[in-house]
Design a protein around this nucleic acid. Sequence first.
RNA 1: CGGGGCGUAGCGCAGCCCGGUAGCGCGCCUGCUUUGGGAGCAGGAUGUCGAGUGUUCAAAUCACUCCGCCCCGACCA
Length: 569
Amino acid sequence: MRYSEMFLPTGREVPSDAELISHQLMIRAGLMRKLTSGVYSYLPLGYRVIRKFEQIVREEMNRAGAQEIFLPMVQPAELWQESGRWVRYGKELLRFRDRHDRECCLGPTHEEVITDLVRNEIKTYRQLPRNLYQIQTKFRDEIRPRFGVMRCREFGMKDAYSFDTDEAGAEVSYRKMFEAYQRIFTRCGLNFRPVEADSGSIGGRYSHEFMVMANSGEDAICHCSACNYAANLEKAEIARPAESETAGTTLDVEEVNTPGVRTIEEVCSFLQVAPDAVVKTLIFSVDDTPVAVLIRGDQEVNEIKVKNFLGCDSLELADDAMIRKVTGSPLGFAGAVGIQARVIADYSLLGMSDCVMGANREDYHLRHVKPGRDFPIADYADLRIIRESDPCPRCGGEVRFARGIEVGHVFKLGTKYSKAMKAVFLDQSGKEKIMVMGCYGIGIGRTVAATIEQNYDADGIVWPLPLAPYAVIITPVNVNEKMLADAAAELYHILTEKGVEVILDDRDERAGVKFKDADLIGIPYRVTVGPKRLAGGKMEIKTRRSGEVAILPVSEVTPFLIARIREGL
RNA sequence: CGGGGCGUAGCGCAGCCCGGUAGCGCGCCUGCUUUGGGAGCAGGAUGUCGAGUGUUCAAAUCACUCCGCCCCGACCA
């Protein structure tokens, strides 16, 4: 493509509303433009990158035995009512009515549609397993779209759904997708890692998130420095500590006046104790029933773990009225002694034998409290957020924290949707069985943005070759010098004929401007055609990433580039 | 939805406190010069100052309402 004919608006200024490097560069390099909050148009250069990535995804999905389909974006409410998500999904689901007043929604995901399709067409074990995928635009009415295409409302996603006859088959399907994902992100040249994750409201029992490592990432992850354990921070397990036999306190519980002392910090300084000698009592409203969660004062409760442990639908911190009802006191003085609620405790309470906790009486705390002696604990569980000082739950090694961008997620759905929507088949013995499902997503635009987060420098984007919109840009230093213009055009034609994707920067601009643009848009190889080199029958090839410059006779330029491109893909 | 901030030329911003009819840089157009890392000179175009209402002789500027956008929080395949 000739640069002079391209729709490629580049900018020198950093857009004021862009925070992330990837967002800034995607605007500045003319990859995309915002239409409205969380909704973007891709420009030619950006769309080429998107298609490059989609192609890699397609190749690997097909290789893994999945088949491409294309499902509707507009979906009827009935399907969502059937799965139960019409009620549960919340405001992220954009709902509307058509002219007949029928309720519809824009698909934020396609479990319902695919399950409906499959249950209508697949009747026997002979037709299983199947894995169907699509690359579709999804719409989720995010509360707060941000970071450009990283967290937006309308976005491209590859989603695949597997259907198996049993759990073992589903496990095989899951492994295949897991491996396909490893291949996809490896081919893109990304530094990523799969981490164990909570499966969230989509349901299912276990899942892995594929995280591109980046400090700007929205997700915190925890990984072991010794073994290959890695988990989303919210999921990261903490092993039950060995119980040490402690005699504990022999002192009786004592009530002390602590006027206005509510937070752990205040309690510690008021009573001159360390946070790990205090028990924090949090009252949660669990499906509208109060539950008290006890945890050592220096730790934080992981609400997801609590939710999973209790197996409830909703979990939130109790309001003042509920706190008053179960503790008989306002916020800040809750304790386990005499509380009118189920009590569960984090493992961090094991071994605590002389602690401070709220007295369930305004302006009073208790000291010398001994769990077990002074109040019963129904259950101990892993309910806290992991810290960097905790040992790895698998091998006991040291854990490290890092940040990442979630670009893919593989789920074992089990029978959540197939059961609700009656996706059944007949097995060999003619018995009706429920299909076992899995679902597997990859954020297309987000992966492209994540790629930029990992591949840029002070001058702009540095595309990995497999995702680069063009492999080569030819820059005649002055198009008004016929020698240069002709030599550049000739190279352009030769490369194009050889199937190399190349831009000829034939604009009547100063060399500096062209260099800056070439760097900004991140084309891997730039061929500079200048008067001095050309007089000696040579051209310069500059590698964007390394800055390395090769000066070659004109005849060797094409073979050189083709060889480099071949090894780079 | 709560807290904070911002809407002035295509982009980035000043002007607003202290009302008097809009400016800077980049970009854009024309011409000449220039041509290996975002050129120089000369000339030029471009704004319902986010919208509405009010106060005033007079509103970008003050007040109120609305809309949009951004940041923090809650939320989240």
